[in-house]
Design a protein around this nucleic acid. Structure first.
Lengths: 210, 210
DNA sequence: CTTGCCCGTGAATCCCGGTTCACATCCTAG
DNA sequence: CTAGGATGTGAACCGGGATTCACGGGCAAG
């Protein structure tokens, strides 16, 4: 079974994902999903007990990919400073979101139904957790001042998400350069956690890492 | 019209607001609104052409109050520094949101329908704009480094909103002290815009209390 | 008085989208 | 070849919620 034609199940999943990417959950009705997959509505129920469960599976698979990427970054930068890891994680987050804003919005915020919302929560927590860990290290290492790491992490995740896909996003308006936005967000993040400006060491002395 | 008994129209608006405060838009069906207002469903259509339009009016009135409060703060602090104004605005935002999280969530994020969503956008823009203005002043005055003010403002609005009412919010979990959260957010905001730590001059280093 | 308008009623209606199910079709095991 | 399971079909069904409308009652103006 190498490079086979996609099974119906896969086609349904793909159709659902595409629809969500294009128009959010609202655009992904059973009829639309089945239609795009080239099958009848009833077919969907041969593979999932309900539409919600299809969404859960879809959501989970997409999130797993995202989180995996995040974890990979964390591993690659194991030796680096906490601040560097935070920056890298947020930059990755931003880049991926910018590449597919609709999907990002669906993953980050759009409410669907309780089942999917629970998944989303887990996803977000994973994200915030990654930041939190790096931030704690940074605090311990004296790279940044002591702070409410939980709140900082949550605010960063929310803020960056918002800035990227939210309704006030400056991106929506003019077509900005994605790379520039990512760069600006890195700077923002550095400041927000209390790190010294890029490349500099905080006025010479830092507290010994303990 | 001195302290008269509420008109049916007013009772409907109030009922709708209460329902949204308690359970979000989902809980505010026509039947529920009419029921709480003590009238029949059909009555609603004597006053608005559709449910959406009622929501638009409701949304607008609530937002106007919020924005008015914001503007008032801006005016009161006219003499103060840009950073102080930013802090004050965010703190106000946070306090109000914490006082009524459900409503805040509805105003900040919960999708309803295109008509209302357009209103939300205006509201958010007003908010971000207030921050942006203050931030620009701060940059001009040299209180904070040059930066992408638009992006900083958007990220702050989103981040604070998220931290307060979002699903990853640390508030949801343990019952935190609202005042403490507001204080932490002020600190976060100062850092995020690049201001010196409270009351200190940029030259001194900060030490974790420990 | 009576005409007409505003306001209120609530059951009927409409709409939309998820879900079901009786009926093929295909494929594999026996 | 045939039975039976898996898969696919799509029209019909259903529930929930917005919207309509034929039917009063009050009330001010003519």
């Amino acid at each position: 079974m190498v490079g086979t034609v996609a099974t119906t199940r896969e086609r349904l999943l793909r159709a659902a994902r595409e629809l969500v990417e294009e128009g959010g959950y609202g655009a992904a009705s059973v009829a639309a999903i089945a239609g795009r997959a080239g099958v009848a509505s009833g077919t969907l129920y041969r593979h999932w007990p309900s539409k919600s469960e299809l969404f859960v599976e879809l959501f989970r698979s997409v999130c797993d990919r995202e989180v995996a990427a995040l974890v990979a970054v964390g591993r690659d930068l194991r030796g680096r400073s906490g601040v560097e890891r935070i920056e890298a994680q947020l930059a990755l987050f931003a880049e991926r979101a910018l590449r597919n804003p609709r999907l990002a919005w669906a993953l980050i915020a759009e409410p669907v139904d309780p089942l999917v919302d629970a998944e989303r929560l887990a996803y977000r927590k994973a994200y915030a957790q990654g930041l939190e860990d790096a931030l704690r290290d940074a605090v311990a290492a004296g790279e940044v001042p002591a702070q409410d790491v939980e709140l900082t992490a949550a605010t960063l995740v929310g803020g960056v998400g918002e800035a990227l896909v939210g309704p006030v996003s400056p991106l929506g308006a003019a077509g900005r350069d994605a790379a520039a936005v990512v760069a600006a967000l890195r700077v923002f993040a550095r400041r927000a956690v209390g790190a010294a400006p890029t490349g500099e060491v905080p006025t010479g002395e830092v507290h010994p890492a303990g």
